[in-house]
Design a protein around this nucleic acid. Structure first.
Length: 803
DNA sequence: AGCACGCCGACT
DNA sequence: GTCGGCGTGCTC
């Protein structure tokens, strides 16, 4: 028997292992490992999508078998490498294998299921007949119909008056365009040319094209555009049977603007050494991990580009990851400008169709350099020579929901598979990576100097407690304000960062102390002046601004805290002639608005760029000589052991935005904690000292990288159910784990209520727990029945935050 | 996930 | 009696 092992698209623990199906004769020569198929599943006629994990040519199976219904692909969409990666990832992240597979593929390959109702007999209830409205097949969406109608349908189904049909819809569609190929020979065309009216200018051009391009085909649109021929004349030519018209697949082109070509720069000694060391590993096919630690402005990008070039020269491909591609458009342009059409990009700014096309270009071997954000690590590249992860410490490399993978781990797996080096680059490496470099697990390569020996910007810390005493409520210190005015006079640009969007962070009644909260989340609402509403930044809830207190009816309502909107107003008042651009989630929601804002700033259309932390990354504007951090404390106050690390990273990065060209930079950091070590050390941009200090704190408090961590969360609409589940799990953990494991909780998550669900959590810190895997699997298997009741248990290995 | 089966209470 | 609620178990 020809059998196939199929991983079915049913994300549950019980269906996590492959199911065996019979391969029908008519599909026998087509079916291959890694293809998407449609299979029947369960009672009735339910159909679902699946992935072939294995084909067994003469297999046996005891029990009844069903047949594979059809294939969705002509070629496998997952090669053996990615298939086995999905298996490893499933174990590592405690996620279902099918979820891992689906995150590896472009989203259009995730099939949509549509239930349909087929009318079998005219003798049915009038209400049902009305539903069909004359046709015999209609879409059947249970939750859109009233209960009594659904009941009637179920009864009619029992009497076989109607049948439920399942449709598996494949959304992976290539874009098709019209193409033309000549149906007449060159001689025939010459003959036509002699007989045609001399004023048929367009038709003459067409014939000349046919004569000069014998046997070629061309896109209809291209023929019209390149040869300046009207569409109507082309239609005439088709009618005259000169052309055969057919549909041709075309890649959607995501590069709207052409990118300027750029060329390799001369490397300094440190850079050259880095490129040589890594290239040596590429050549020797050695899966070494390199930590490239380079201060801001030390030219890491050029090292990446020239390393990629070496890999290409050796006939290999390269994969380059960046944190959030929309935040680093300049970097992407540089790669594209260096390697041209051989580059494929995969990022959130593309439409799902464009992503699919880029993915197919990679799959077809038409691109050998891939640049992209987190999920690009799954690019179906063959023969990878080097994998590069820029800003490796960035938290966006870890996926927030299942499968909760970290890009770094997947990158290591693939580097090992391809026997190629992995380069982790950062000015402020994660402590985990830096610690591994110390232990010799990774090889540390340093770029300690800025290019051209440019000096680092001077950082001045301003104590806002002092400022408050003399200046009252203002968000701008006198020093910063003076510096801003000074730059405006010199026609230089300013970047200001405030890590909070909106206008005010909360609204409180001064009479009774009542604070307006989101009805769905345990979070205070933020005032937004532009839309004149109170918004929840977590679930999107919006409501009008209250004019009197909802609790006591008093009108003594005050706005507390400061967001980007309020600062913009304040700044405009303080510096009336400045042109200010605001950049936060609210002003960059539309596709491409991010780039447009940056472009305007780069063109000098604005003097001040005011934004949230999204402005801290990768921007390189030579005319920016002043950077101000309005409140450095927002990231410091979070209840998380990594808050110092994050603050240090952010301040170091945003400081790096100042003075990148000939002009020297100045940075002002406003804070209420001027003595905090993260702030003090970011002033000197002394990563190594920060690393040592932070490591000693982590050591004392038993946190990573000295300990491993796991976060387990339970959520339910009913608070006590979530809490009870967590205590149950705590009991299991206590019984199964050793005395050395440290358990924090069960406790309510720091945002207890989110989108109407309550969250409780446990954090486990451990060093060696041979039982851990088994223990978590056990919990996983036992929460399954709760999920149906809406009580979800999540496991997050190596969580990036404890909140 | 989606469906059937089976066991309980409240109604024509 | 039975309709419909929901808890439980299974899907190659």
């Amino acid at each position: 028997m020809r059998l196939a092992k199929v991983i079915v698209d049913v994300p549950t623990m019980q269906t996590n292992d492959p199911y065996t199906y019979l391969v029908p004769d008519e599909l026998s020569d087509k079916i291959q490992k890694g293809m998407r198929v449609i299979v029947p599943f369960g009672n009735g006629s339910r159909k679902i999508q699946g992935i072939i994990a294995d084909v067994d040519n003469d297999g046996e199976f005891d029990g009844k078998l069903k047949k594979i219904e059809g294939i969705l692909d002509l070629e496998p969409v997952l090669n053996p490498e990615l298939l086995s990666l999905s298996k490893w990832m499933s174990k590592k992240t405690y996620a279902f294998q099918i979820s891992c597979i689906l995150t590896m593929l472009p989203s259009v390959m995730r099939a949509k299921y549509q239930k349909q109702l087929v009318l079998n007999s005219d003798d049915v209830d009038d209400d049902i007949l009305k539903l069909f409205d004359g046709s015999t097949v209609i879409d059947f969406d249970v939750d859109k119909l009233p209960n009594d109608i659904v009941r009637k349908i179920i009864q009619a189904r029992k009497k076989r008056q109607v049948v439920i049909k399942y449709k598996v819809q494949d959304n992976a569609k290539a874009k098709k365009i019209y193409a033309l190929s000549s149906k007449i020979s060159t001689d025939e065309a010459k003959h036509e040319l002699e007989n045609i009216r001399k004023n048929s200018k367009n038709l003459i051009k067409i014939l000349q094209y046919i004569i000069s391009h014998p046997g070629e085909s061309i896109a209809q649109r291209k023929l019209a555009k390149d040869y300046d021929i009207s569409e109507s004349s082309i239609k005439t030519a088709i009618q005259k049977n000169w052309f055969k018209r057919f549909l041709q697949e075309e890649y959607r082109n995501p590069y709207k603007q052409t990118v300027k070509r750029n060329y390799p720069l001369k490397l300094n000694d440190d850079q050259a050494n880095a490129v040589n060391t890594i290239s040596d590993s590429i050549e020797k096919e050695n899966d070494q991990v390199y930590l490239l630690e380079g201060v801001t402005g030390s030219g890491k990008t050029e090292v990446y580009l020239q390393t990629i070039q070496r890999a290409l020269k050796m006939g290999k491909t390269a994969l380059m990851l960046v944190p959030e591609i929309s935040l680093t458009p300049q970097m992407v342009k540089r790669v594209k400008g260096r390697f041209g059409d051989r580059v494929a990009m995969l990022h959130s700014g593309l439409s799902s169709g464009e992503k699919y096309d880029e993915w197919r270009r990679i799959e077809n071997g038409e691109a050998d350099v891939v640049v992209g954000a987190r999920s690009a690590i799954f690019a179906p590249l063959d023969n990878i020579g080097v994998i590069i992860m820029d800003e490796e410490h960035e938290s966006s490399y870890k996926q927030d929901d299942a499968p909760r993978y970290h890009t770094r781990d997947v990158a290591k797996w693939r580097a090992n598979y391809h026997n190629c080096p992995l380069v982790l680059g950062s000015a402020t490496p994660s402590l985990e990576s830096r610690a591994r470099a110390t232990k010799g697990v990774y090889t540390l390569i340093r770029l300690p100097h800025r290019i051209n020996n440019q000096s680092l910007p001077e950082v001045r810390i301003i104590d806002m407690k002092e400022q408050m005493k003399e200046n009252g409520q203002e968000d701008f210190s006198n020093e910063l304000l003076a510096a801003i005015n000074n730059r405006l006079q010199k026609h230089e640009q300013v970047v200001l960062m405030l890590n909070r969007r909106g206008y005010s962070s909360f609204v409180m009644c001064r009479n009774c102390g009542f604070v307006l909260h989101c009805p769905n989340c345990d979070i205070s609402l933020t005032l937004h002046m532009d839309s004149r509403t109170m918004k929840c930044h977590y679930c999107g809830h919006e409501e009008p601004i209250p004019n009197k207190c909802r609790n006591c009816g008093s009108k003594k309502i005050r706005y507390y805290g400061t967001g980007t909107q309020k600062v913009q107003q304040q700044l405009q008042r303080l510096v009336p002639n400045a042109r200010i651009l605001r950049m936060d989630v609210d002003t960059t929601r539309r596709k491409g608005s991010h780039e447009r804002l940056l472009q305007r700033f780069g063109n000098g259309d604005a003097d001040i760029l005011l934004g949230t932390q999204m402005i801290a990354k990768g921007l390189d504007f030579p005319n920016v000589t002043l950077v101000g951090v309005l409140n450095a404390d927002t990231s410091l106050d979070l209840p998380d052991f990594r808050s110092s690390e994050r603050t240090f990273d952010l301040l170091t990065q945003v400081s790096g935005r100042a003075g990148r060209a000939e002009k020297s930079g100045l940075v002002y950091v406003q804070t209420f904690n001027p003595d905090n070590y993260a702030i003090q050390l970011s002033k000197k941009q002394d990563y190594e000292l920060f690393y040592r200090k932070e490591m000693s704190i982590r050591h004392e408090t038993n946190y990573p990288p000295y300990f491993f961590t796991v976060k387990i969360t339970a959520s339910d609409v009913n608070e006590s159910k979530a809490a009870a589940k967590m205590f149950e799990i705590a009991k299991i953990l206590k019984a199964k784990l050793s005395q050395q494991a440290i358990m924090l909780g069960p406790s309510p998550s720091s945002i207890l209520k989110l989108k109407n669900k309550y969250y409780y959590q446990i954090i486990i810190k451990y060093k060696h727990e041979p039982n851990m895997d088994e223990c978590l699997e056990y919990i996983l298997n036992h929460y399954q029945k709760d999920a149906q009741k809406g009580l979800y248990v999540n496991i997050d290995p190596d969580p990036l935050n404890f909140m």
